Simulated scan of single mutants.
Amino acid sequence: MPRLIGLYIRQCAIGFAVSAAFVALLLWFDVAGLSRLVFASDMAVVAILMLWVMNGIVFAGVQFAWAVMSMAERDETPRGGKRLRLEPVPVKVGAEKRRDHQTTVGY
Rank of each mutant, 00 (worst) to 15 (best):
I57P: 00
D42T: 11
R98H: 07
V53I: 07
A24C: 12
W28T: 12
C12L: 03
R79M: 07
F29K: 13
A72D: 02
T77I: 01
A24T: 13
P2N: 14
I14L: 12
K92C: 10
V23F: 02
G94F: 13
A47E: 15
R99G: 04
R10S: 14
V18D: 01
S19C: 07
D30L: 10
V58Y: 14
V91S: 01
A47S: 11
D75Q: 06
W66G: 03
I57M: 09
M43A: 06
I14F: 05
R10E: 09
P2V: 01
M1W: 07
V53G: 02
L34A: 12
R3T: 11
A24E: 10
D42I: 03
K82R: 07
D75H: 02
K97E: 14
G80T: 00
H101E: 10
A17P: 00
V62W: 02
G6T: 06
P88T: 04
L84N: 09
W28N: 14
A40F: 02
I48C: 05
F29P: 00
A65H: 04
K92H: 15
V58I: 14
L51K: 01
L51T: 02
G6Q: 15
L4V: 09
L26M: 15
V23C: 10
Q102A: 15
Q63A: 05
A67D: 11
I57L: 13
A44D: 12
G6K: 15
E73F: 04
G56R: 00
W28Y: 15
G94N: 13
T103Q: 11
K97M: 12
L84V: 13
A17R: 03
W52A: 09
G33N: 05
G106Y: 14
E73L: 08
M71G: 07
M71F: 01
P78D: 05
L7K: 06
L25H: 10
V91I: 14
F16V: 02
A32Y: 02
Q102T: 15
L7G: 08
M69S: 08
L37K: 05
A24R: 06
P78R: 05
